[in-house]
Design a protein around this nucleic acid. Structure first.
Length: 481
RNA sequence: GCGAGAGUAACUCAGUUGGUAGAGUAUCACGUUGCCAACGUGAAUGUCGCGGGUUCAAAUCCCGUCUCUCGCUCCA
């Protein structure tokens, strides 16, 4: 564990809070941790699930023409050939020994680098990618690249000649093998994006759910990318959850629907309680589009480390369906009963990162203020995101107060995630709840013995009001929707 | 992979010229406590990242190694 964090920067403080309160923390920590993998503790998984459920409901409940799907993580290896991932997710790289710059081998002038960009050799013969499973020996000794050519390679950054390292293969997909017998295995990949499963299944989904264009298929699930560089806490990790909806539209209607979904998706982040001033649109320049995209917009959030992408709204055109039709030989067209036309649907994609959405929610909710000269840290989470909706406290341990408080707790927990605590001073118990963003604190005091009322304290302002203990459930229901 | 930095309790850290580890916070128990991290008493928690070497003796000196963090390269 590194101890050189600048503990004053906002990101470090958020990370520390996440660990302290069991929201998100380093995975495999007893073994020293594994780079950029994180586990979500009791409160973290609840926040994450809350966001995921809101997304799911937003898609499938609020749109009558969007249905859900849960496709496999491991797909037929040919999928990744057809999708372009084998070709585009695998880059041969060289480093300049002089200036330490790194470049794609096929972008260096001069030699036969790049000449043999043999991405087609991929999975089937088992030799193409990553050769040795396991340890660092993975990146092959550059077969095919930089053959025997003696031409001069010039570093585009510092101008040094022939200062490059061996070509190394960077494969951004995790590969694995199917089948227990080593000689008889098929090389497969963990999906680097969830949407391919939607493309493979769209016809059976469309037919079985009797959907007419335009319609959408929504899916959440894990995706895996062997990122060269990870970092910024849970912003970029090698294993992450995507929330993707692929919208199948008639040719010619794409741009209108892009605008519709841009508005929908923008509003989703507002509904999570994120400050609109911390959001912006970023359009990908045409010359930097991903290999499948015709038009691409990102919603970005102003993280403590800078603007970062939360979600993309993309025009994928008919790239994917045509690619799979060509590769599989199966018809991927849609027949329009009304116009008697057959065509490849155009696809508008909304592709969000759940972990990033959660990080944005946490970063946006992180607050510090001062109460009676003491610093207070709290998460101003929207109540419908908060992992615990209310905490119930007896003011002190005597006078039968704990019994009354516990009875209220037992009753409430049938309907809400609530927490009961009697340990420590009342102020300390409030603060503990503040740090996980619990919106309401309900305290049983001596007045409760007289008239049955309790205090309800609102997290952000510390203001209290008295309501009858029998009305607490109703009070919470009103405020939590 | 390159460069830089860092590894001592759950957290933040201290540990003198080598003498087998401490503080605060947090946690738990009991007491106390009339609303915002109060107080008292007590308890539990470490192979000082790992391995080797020097030494009577290593958290400390030497060598190796691992991991993490940041920057760069890359990024759908």
């Amino acid at each position: 564990m590194a101890k050189n964090k600048k503990s004053n920067d906002p990101m470090s403080k958020l990370v520390a809070l996440c660990k302290r309160r069991g929201i998100v923390f380093q995975s495999s920590e007893i073994y020293g941790g594994v780079g950029s993998t994180y586990d979500y503790g009791p409160y973290g998984v609840t926040i994450k699930n809350n966001i995921e459920r809101l997304w799911w409901d937003e898609m499938t409940l609020k749109h009558e023409n969007i249905v859900g799907l849960d496709s496999a993580v491991i797909l037929h290896p040919k999928v990744w050939d057809a999708s372009g991932h084998l070709k585009n997710f695998s880059d041969p790289m060289v480093d300049c020994k002089e200036c330490k710059g790194r470049f794609r081998a096929d972008q260096i002038n001069g030699t036969g680098y790049g000449g043999g960009s043999d991405s087609g050799a991929g999975y089937s013969d088992g030799t193409g990618y990553g050769g040795g499973s396991g340890s660092g020996a993975g990146y092959g000794d550059g077969t095919g690249y930089g053959g025997g050519s003696e031409d001069v390679n010039v570093c585009p950054k510092c101008g040094s000649k022939n200062s490059f390292t061996e070509v190394r293969e960077f494969n951004l997909m995790f590969d694995t093998t199917m089948g227990p017998v080593a000689d008889d295995t098929v090389k497969t990949f963990l999906r680097p994006e969830t949407c391919q499963g939607i493309f493979l299944d769209w016809k059976i989904v469309q037919e079985s759910a009797r959907l007419k264009i335009p319609f959408g298929i929504a899916q959440t699930g894990k995706a895996f990318r062997n990122e060269i560089t990870t970092g910024n806490f849970i912003f970029r990790t090698r294993e992450f959850t995507q929330m993707e909806m692929q919208y199948f539209v008639k040719p010619g209607e794409t741009s209108e629907l892009i605008n519709y979904w841009k508005e929908q998706r923008w509003n989703f982040y507002l509904s999570l309680g994120i400050n609109e001033e911390d959001l912006r649109w970023h359009e990908h320049p045409k010359d930097k589009l991903a290999h499948y995209a015709k038009e691409a917009w990102d919603i970005e959030y102003k993280f403590p480390f800078g603007w970062g992408e939360l979600e993309g709204v993309h025009d994928r055109g008919d790239f994917d369906l045509k690619a799979h039709q060509e590769s599989s030989g199966k018809d991927m067209t849609y027949f329009d009963d009304q116009t008697r036309e057959r065509f490849h649907p155009q696809i508008v994609e909304t592709s969000a990162g759940l972990n990033r959405a959660m990080l944005a929610v946490l970063a946006d909710a992180y607050r510090e203020d001062e109460q009676a000269g003491e610093q207070r840290i709290y998460l101003a989470l929207a109540p419908h995101i908060a992992p615990v909706k209310a905490a119930i406290f007896p003011l002190v341990k005597k006078g039968g107060l704990p019994d009354i408080a516990h009875a209220i707790y037992t009753d409430l927990r049938k309907h809400f995630p609530v927490f009961y605590d009697f340990q420590g001073s009342i102020g300390k118990r409030y603060r503990r709840m503040d740090e996980i963003g619990t919106p309401y604190g309900i305290t049983v005091d001596f007045q409760t013995l007289e008239d049955g009322t309790v205090t309800v304290r609102w997290r952000d302002t510390l203001q209290q009001e008295r309501i009858h203990k029998d009305k607490v459930g109703e009070f919470l229901r009103d405020r939590l929707g």
